[in-house]
Write a protein that binds this DNA or RNA. Sequence first.
RNA 1: GCCGGCGUGGCGGAAUAGGUAGACGCCCGGGACUUAAAAUCCCGUGCGAGUCAAUCGCGUACCGGUUCAAGUCCGGUCGCCGGCACCA
Length: 769
Amino acid sequence: MSSKPKYYALIEFPYPSGNGLHVGHTRPFTAMDIIARKRRMEGYDVLFPIGWDAFGLPTENYAIKNRVHPRDVTADNINHFREQAKSLLYSFDWEREVNTTDPSYYKWTQWIFVQMFKRGLAYKTKMPVNWCTGCKCVLANEEVVDGVCERCGSEVVRKEKSQWMLKITEYAERLIDDLDEVDYIERVKTQQKNWIGKSYGAELGFKLNVGGEIKVYTTRPDTLFGATYMVVSPEHAVLEGLAPHIENLDEVQAYQSEAAKKSDFERGELNKVKTGVELKGIKAVNPVTNTEIPVFIADYVLSTYGTGAIMAVPAHDERDWEFARKFGLPMTEVISGGKISEAAYTGDGIAVNSGFINGMRVTEAKTKMIAWLTENGIGEEKVNYKLRDWVFSRQRYWGEPIPIVYCEHCGYVPIDESDLPLLLPEVESYEPTDSGESPLASITDWVNTTCPKCGAAAKRETDTMPQWAGSSWYYLRYMSPDCDTALVDPDAIRYWNQVDWYNGGMEHTTLHLLYSRFWHKFLYDIGIVPTKEPYAKRTSQGMILGEDGQKMSKSRGNVVNPDDVIAEYGADTLRLYIMFIGDFEQTANWNSNAVKGCRRFLDRVVGLTNKPLISNSVCERTLHKTIKKVGDDIEQLKFNTAIAQMMTLLNELSDKGASLEDLRILLTILSPFAPQTAQELWSKLGLPGAAAEQQWVEFDPAKMVESEKTIAVQVGGKLKTTITMPTDSDDEEVVAAAMRNEKILKIADGLTLVKSIVVKNKLVNLIMK
RNA sequence: GCCGGCGUGGCGGAAUAGGUAGACGCCCGGGACUUAAAAUCCCGUGCGAGUCAAUCGCGUACCGGUUCAAGUCCGGUCGCCGGCACCA
């Protein structure tokens, strides 16, 4: 370990697809490469690694189609990616490469899973899951976008399956709270908070006329007096027990089976039209009004949120209002301020028709009601989250085998840690099955094993882990990629501590980023890592679209291949252009014409070194301004303006002449952006050492001082002319000089100066009457 | 519907804390070099008037406000992008 201060800069390791690196990758990669290079020049020991997130479906599908082993496809793709990354001159720590499909790597992915299992954070349960009809595989909630698979776009349907789950919900609170400790861009923080979806309210029970009760969760306990009916979700467990009392059981069961066929998305689709069936013969008692209210089943109530049942307050909830209207149910206004005959009123107001909370505002009424429910043993305060546990099993081949066996006597038993890694077995066919079983299930001599606990015959888990498993902890592996006694060497983690700066795509905010924060917190809890959070800082780049403003895709024919750009213009030009293309955080369209401008800039820098040098710099002011601006802008990801400033400097040097020192400095600050050109010219000029190994240059504020300033002269706030004044002239002098100006004299003719405002070294505004 | 972000020339985009709008680049027009073209270099380039000079209007989505001064702040409207969405 070095005695220098450390700096850990991280990019999201790529998935080595068959298409190779695309220009989309070059934006975040180049940005972090510039930062890593600058940090090295600033004297840091920099960790800037790359690896391969190599498990996953596209590779497997390609392997199936072409009858090759995914392992071989992966190796080929990685070789291609590596060559491309090298041709882009990225200064990665190539000796630290990691590969999630390497058994020495996934050994530790499995090890983490075993630790989670041992602590009750991994469990298997039968539940309705998202089944992708294209991938023939279960998806996590986070992977379903608009009702289709985020990866392949196929329809996602609901299927009852027994799945391994990770209790990310147990970390929901900390995943929100600890965002306060990290420097993430705001939109990432809000998106994560929204996804976790914390809400405050109460859970309370409604007694039933047939005995027993139904629990509900509400964020509006203040409206309890207005609860005129109840709704339970069609899948609710309570329905089974109630069945004998339900008079219209046929109708209810028909509704249940109809609802079961719909996916969550389809249910949402029919947003406007509420459906449902009353449970005839069942009545619930509103605990504050003591009146009997009807109970319905309806699919607008989700089984997976809260208790799967609600108290309906039609006067103050839009969905309940619609439902009540359709079914002719009574509404009671309990919060004043709206017109409940026209719409549900969800705003603030004063409690009315509400007994002991009458006259209170919403906030106070909530508190009072929760206190009352608690005193009377009816309910209690409750926090709820939208976040659900992470569906962790996948029914595919190309993933980490889940290291669990099932024993008739002992249940689920993890594989002994000394037996890890549990290797992915060779298999005849990787083809996914419609039955929903992993291809591993067909290898009977692999499936049949013995229980690690009791030695009896047992069966292996045949599902594999999702792609998000290996990527949830890879940043730790880089610290000691060859360590075989721990997932990360204790000395290495003590030195590297955590990632200082992590840049990646917004599309990973609720997937990879959330998952890896969860795993990291778990590793913190079991004493593996010293920090609560994996990444101290997180930034995000905008997307690169095609020339036509559309997302790049083969079918649109608007894909830009970085290899072609490098062949035509060189790697430095590509690096420069992708940074100059626009605001780093905004979406940008590729423009092949504009690439030329960056090449021209580099050519002109070369041209400058061919001209005779002058002995003393005549551009020191711009030079130092540039040093400052480039340094500051890199830190703020404003690469476009940093490059613009270097162009300005070049223009001035071309005009007025450059000294060797001017060129030395220009090449030094240019070298993180365009390392090849910078180094070539560095050598050509006979400068000592390597450009990339220079100290980052400091600007000298004294050299930035101007002796004269151009002062804008306004009359009544409108610019009329400019005057030149010595720097830091007194306000009176500036006004006097402005009034002496020929043009101003003309305007001032017949008027008197009533007021003047001077902004030092910048502007004077004369108010005349 | 809710939560973020954004709206500036022909185009990509600049404008630290309100203070000379349009930096830098692209495209385009003119010129030099060349037999010619490409490349390169020089000049011009927000829009509209103007004896094409001086100069004068108008301009940062739209309407209004605060201010000596608004792209920037405030209120409202419209439009675009991203995320979430029957989450009780």
